[in-house]
Every structure is written in structure tokens, then in C-alpha cells.
């Protein structure tokens, strides 16, 4: 029996969203982590408005990277533990569709709330007033890249007992380009410079990882489920 791609995609997406909403802590905790990390920085570097304005883009983005990292594990872990991941891999449709659906669900659960909450944290950090649009746009294009690249790391480590720390070692170096161009865009916006170029590159990273990452995730999952 052949499953239509759209049907398979929407079924898995719906399933993952339902599961996520029944475990609300999984959604809330990374967001709380994001807020707490950001609010630690003024305590660490001092409350001077100018300093905060300078570090705000970097702090918000680094906190976003870390909280994505924290939430990544739930992408495949539960399904792996209860065995449903193997069943999903046996579905009569390409792994590409399955992986893409799961990553989309992950982004909707963890990436989207970050984008919504980020401007408020920008206020806390005294972000330059011209930077808010750039912050939102860079997060909108950048967080899917984080989910996509992170999925490769989780897929590789899902079968391991102590995968958590290893995951950060595997994934964080791959996040560096996104971090650089996102904070570059926000900085450029604060100086009233055009930042389309930065956003275009983040978009390129997004489309590149959108097309390539699912294949890597698929083969990594096949290794992990053996």
C-alpha cells in the first residue's frame, strides 16, 4: 500500500503535536530555560544599559541555541524508547517525509515560542529599537535551521544512554554560521545598515539544510535503530 506523502506528513505532524500538548512541560521548560539564561546575563555583566545593548543580540541568540539544544532530545527519544520509531521507519513512504514532519513539529513546539517571546527579552536587554524586526526575522529563518541540523545530532545519539552531552559537542559547532549571520543582521539593523544580505544567507542555510539534513537524519536513524 502506498501512502500519499501529504497524508503521511500531516498524520505524523498531528500525532507529534498532540503528544507534545499532553506533556506541556516539554514545551514550557525550554522556554523557561531561554528566559532564565537571558536574565542571567545582566546579573553577570552588570546592568549598564550600553553594555546590555551591545551584547543583547548575541545573548538572545546564544540562549536560543542552548534552549533548542535542550529540547532536541525529545525529538526522537520517546519514540525510540517505546519502539514506535522503528514502526514509523517501516512505513510505506520515504523516511524523508517522516523526518521532515517530526522536525516541523519540533520547530512549531520549540522554535515558534522562542520567536514570540524574544522581543520581550529584547526589552529586558535594552535591545536597540531598530533591531526588533531584524531579531524576529533572523529567528524566523534561523530557528528552523537549528531544528534541522540538531535533528542530525539527535538521530546519531538517540540509541545511546549518555547521549546528552555528546549531542552538544556534535551540534553546537554546526550552529556557528547561523549564530554569526543572525547576530550580524541584528547588529547591522541597529546601525541602520541594510541587513538583507545576512538574512539571505540564513535563508540559504535554511534551504540547504532543509534539502540535505533529512537524508542525513534518515540514514542516522537507520544506524541508531539498527
Amino acid at each position: 500500500m502506498q501512502l500519499s506523502y501529504r497524508r503521511a506528513f500531516s498524520t505524523i505532524l498531528k500525532r507529534d503535536l498532540v503528544i507534545a500538548f499532553r506533556h506541556r512541560d516539554d514545551i514550557l521548560n525550554p522556554i523557561l530555560f531561554f528566559i532564565i539564561v537571558v536574565s542571567l546575563f545582566p546579573l553577570g555583566v552588570g546592568p549598564a544599559a550600553n553594555t546590555l545593548m551591545k551584547i543583547a543580540p548575541g545573548v538572545i541568540w546564544v540562549a536560543a541555541l542552548l534552549s533548542t539544544l535542550l529540547s532536541l532530545e525529545r525529538l526522537f527519544k520517546h519514540d525510540y524508547n517505546d519502539g514506535s520509531l522503528e514502526q514509523l521507519l517501516l512505513m510505506p513512504c520515504p523516511t524523508f517525509v517522516l523526518v521532515l514532519a517530526k522536525i516541523t513539529a519540533h520547530w512549531l513546539i520549540t522554535g515558534l515560542p522562542l520567536i514570540i517571546i524574544a522581543p520581550f527579552l529584547g526589552v529586558l536587554l535594552n535591545l536597540h529599537q531598530d533591531s526588533y524586526v531584524a531579531l524576529m526575522l533572523s529567528l524566523l529563518l534561523g530557528t528552523p535551521v537549528l531544528s534541522l541540523l540538531g535533528a542530525i545530532g539527535v538521530a546519531l545519539t538517540v540509541g545511546l544512554k549518555k547521549g546528552g552531552v555528546l549531542l552538544s559537542l556534535l551540534v553546537l559547532p554546526l550552529y556557528i554560521p547561523v549564530l554569526i549571520f543572525a547576530t550580524g543582521a541584528i547588529d547591522a539593523a541597529s546601525m541602520n545598515l541594510p541587513y538583507n544580505g545576512h538574512l539571505a544567507i540564513i535563508a540559504a542555510l535554511f534551504f540547504g539544510s532543509l534539502t540535505l539534513a533529512p537524508f542525513a537524519v534518515g540514514s542516522a536513524l537507520k544506524v541508531s535503530t539498527n
Binding site: 546519531l156 545519539t157 540509541g159 547521549g163 559537542l169 542525513a216 540514514s219 542516522a220 544506524v223 541508531s224
Partner: peptide, 18 residues
């Protein structure tokens, strides 16, 4: 690190290749 994390050498090799 990924190579060392797997107990099964064959799996470790595949994961490290990816």
C-alpha cells in the same frame, strides 16, 4: 566522542561516517 560512545563497533563506524 561519537565513535567511543557506541559499544558496537560496526554502528560506531557508520555513525562516525555520517
Amino acid at each position: 566522542a561519537l565513535q567511543n560512545a557506541f559499544e558496537d563497533k560496526a554502528l560506531a563506524g557508520k555513525a562516525a561516517s555520517i
